[in-house]
Design a protein around this nucleic acid. Structure first.
Length: 474
RNA sequence: GGAGAGGUGGCUGAGUGGCCGAAAGCGCCCGUUUGCUAAACGGGUAUACGGCUAAAACCGUAUCGGGGGUUCGAAUCCCCCCCUCUCCGCCA
């Protein structure tokens, strides 16, 4: 949610911001409704103030009336009636004004929630490119591993033609798609045997790393949450179509609808909703591993095979809540991305960094950097009828200023230089640490061997009972 | 599921119709004094929105779990909802 005061002062900033993000935003409509809301509020407040003022004079004669009798009583009653006349008149006018304010405010909120956070001009890696969609994203750098140079083909790197993760999974018995679909419909799967163990291993590895090396607090989160939290974290209203809804309100005993979260970010950020944190307790660094649910609406037909685009997966997520300091916030963005780069190096996966353009940022981000891993079994088919390999998104690091905390009403008490304190909205950031099973795609494809086996990166072996190779009898 | 109790400021806790945005204590901040790793004393210490401002000060409105009602006026009376706790039952 953007700052309305700032919108009033700098409407053009938000007009341009929405235009660059290619999002509809009715700035003029919002400003008009906002002016109407404030006008009506002022009118009501002035009336109420008058009523309150006059009401103070009624108390004393009311006290006298209780003791009075006869002519004195009649006199007091007449006096009180006169005193009450104007307050009564005002009280009769208030409900109508209140109702119109309610309606105006509802209209204002609906428009308000749709105004996107303008993208920063200066992003993590230089100027933030303006573009309408992911096509406009800019590659920052490619990072290989000692064993794999992403500048060369898989065959050049390893001397044989790679299998796709689907082929590897089938040969090695790591997942069962047919039965997954039987039970839960398209885009469903069951990890089996070492597939599930590898999945658990890589999640645990990533989670432990965030806690042990980077000082993040381990958390569990609810994945079934109320609508306010989906709105508060910025996923609604725009992303409503992407979330599964549990329609408890439709039951006979009429509960409240709940939504399955698409990321642990929702629960981690919601933890401090409506709180005022003490400045010395910041930054808050939280990590969780949670199951994520996504409808993938609008993705019909895309990435239908394999583990790439699925309705349910698990993700280790990191979030940071820090002071409202742009430099500190930018610094965390860099650090959080660094944690991922270290992790991918440990997993020996080649990746590249993408500076996302305005059109790819989503409603809440001021800056976003994606990480893509090289997936040899992905992409267009070559002359030999085999996939040529492609980059596939595995991580996304976002910086949000106070857009999210404003909606969550998440603030902190800032100590000012003059000794006073001021309550401010925190800044928030989030980044994937690791999402699986998607990460299994590059993990299997990159580390596959010519004989169809897959070497387990040494970092993961402790989580697999020391297993070094999947699919080769030792 | 049954029975009962309760939700007041950062915390504890008073307050049953106007003098209550709210006593008192604790905590925190500032100052004074005595001095030594602290005590005493004095003062200050919620949030949001709106108005007026260059910005403050200031003024107004709202907020005592949430919503509605009664009233000229509600922390206080009435109704509905939410949440917490205790005991019993049931179950992981």
């Amino acid at each position: 949610m953007i700052d309305l005061k700032d919108l009033r002062a700098n409407p053009d900033k938000y007009r341009l911001g929405a235009k660059n993000k290619a999002m509809p935003a009715d700035i003029d409509g919002l400003l008009a409704v906002d002016a109407a809301v404030r006008g009506a509020q002022t009118q009501l407040q002035e009336l109420t103030a008058e009523k309150n003022r006059l009401s103070k004079d009624i108390g004393p004669p009311m006290g006298l009336l209780k003791k009075a009798d006869g002519a004195q009583k009649a006199e007091l009653e007449a006096k009180l009636a006169a005193l009450k006349a104007r307050p009564l008149e005002i009280a009769s006018q208030e409900p109508e004004l209140e109702e119109s304010i309610r309606q105006l405010e509802a209209g204002r909120l609906a428009l308000w929630l749709k105004i996107p956070q303008p993208a920063d001009a200066q992003a993590l890696f230089g100027p933030l490119p303006v573009g309408s969609d992911a096509e406009g994203n800019q590659e920052i750098r490619r990072v290989g591993t000692p064993a794999f140079d992403p500048g060369k083909s898989f065959a050049q790197n390893k001397g044989f033609t790679p299998k796709t993760h689907l082929e590897l999974i089938e040969n090695l018995g790591l997942a069962d798609f047919q039965r997954g679909v039987k039970m839960a419909g398209s885009r469903s799967y069951v990890l089996t045997g070492l597939g599930q163990r590898l999945h658990n291993a890589v999640l645990q590895f990533a989670f432990n790393r965030m806690c042990d090396r980077h000082g993040f607090q381990a958390m569990s989160v609810p994945v079934l949450v109320r609508e306010e939290l989906m709105t508060g974290t910025g996923f609604f209203p725009a992303g409503r179509e992407q979330a599964y809804c549990i329609e408890e309100s439709k039951r006979e005993d009429g509960g409240r609808d709940l939504f399955l979260t698409g990321t642990g970010e929702v629960g981690l950020m919601g933890f401090h909703q409506d709180e005022i944190l003490e400045e010395e307790t910041l930054p808050r660094r939280y990590t969780t591993v949670s199951t994520c649910f996504r409808r993938e609406a609008g993705a019909a037909g895309r990435d239908t095979a394999g583990l790439y685009r699925i309705h349910q997966f698990d993700k280790v997520e990191q979030i940071v809540i820090c002071r409202a300091d742009e430099m500190e916030s930018r610094d965390w963005h860099q650090k959080m991305l660094g944690f991922v780069e270290e992790l991918l190096a440990a997993l020996e996966l080649p990746y590249r960094l993408l500076q996302c353009c305005t059109g790819d940022l989503g409603v809440k981000n001021a800056d976003m950097v994606d990480v893509e891993c090289w997936m040899p079994g992905r992409g267009d088919l070559g002359k030999d009828g085999r996939p040529q390999g492609a980059w596939g998104e595995t991580h996304s690091a976002s910086r949000l200023y106070d857009f999210q905390t404003r909606r969550l009403n998440l603030r902190y008490r800032a100590k000012l230089e003059n000794g006073k304190t001021e309550v401010r909205f925190c800044h928030s950031l989030n980044n994937t640490v690791l999402a699986s099973p998607r990460i299994l795609i590059p993990l299997l494809e990159i580390h596959q061997n010519a004989d169809g086996s897959v070497t387990v990166p040494p970092a993961l072996r402790p989580y697999l009972g020391g297993l070094e190779v999947i699919g080769r009898k030792s």
